[in-house]
Amino acid sequence: MSKTLDPKKRIASRIAEELKPGMVVNLGVGIPTLIPEFLQQGNGVFLHSENGMLGMGPPPPPEELDMDCISASKHPVTLEPGAAIFSSSDSFGMIRGGHIDVVVLGALQISEKGEIANWAVPGTDILGVGGAMDLVPGAKKIIAAMTHTAKDGSPKLVRELAYPTTGIQCAKLVVTELAVFSINGESMLLEELAEGTTIDELRAVTDARFHVSTALKTWHDGN
């Protein structure tokens, strides 16, 4: 595997390629928040933030900091030209009503059907859910961004979720530092494999079953 980017940044940079001009995109917490640094300037992507912004820009320089202007991760941000401000109520109406093209979510586990677990770990305190459960059924397309394995090395792509599900709707694309999979609701298809990783090596760290695309691509950093 190439060592040019750390795993989380590799994932973010690959997902940035999926975001096209004119798309309305919501980036969840965690790895998805790294994506803006890989979007070209003037990329034409409209970033939506569930606390009530469309057209969210990068963090401000320190002298322009304004804590009335924050992202859903509660970090200070700026507003792009043409941005709009609205209430939480309108924002979630936008999400549920299907007006967001792509949602990129971090995940704890993804099942081989694309079911997402990203809000709670069994046996720990469940005191927060935030907007995850709203984003999952609302988006036209869900992309999951996660490291291929957990910190203890256990697979995060699993046959069946062991963690509580975030909803019955599924991810269409999963990007890890090792591979890109598409999911059609029934099964996973390996579309791209990181340079220097073999399919056998990938299967060894993947509990979910997957097919291999006949048009499998090798994924190089920086392409």
Partner: peptide, 15 residues
């Protein structure tokens, strides 16, 4: 005590 809602459901219930 805590009563938890998804954020959009929470605000819609208030609306």
């Amino acid at each position: 005590e805590i009563e938890l809602y998804p954020q959009g459901t929470f605000v819609e219930a208030i609306r």
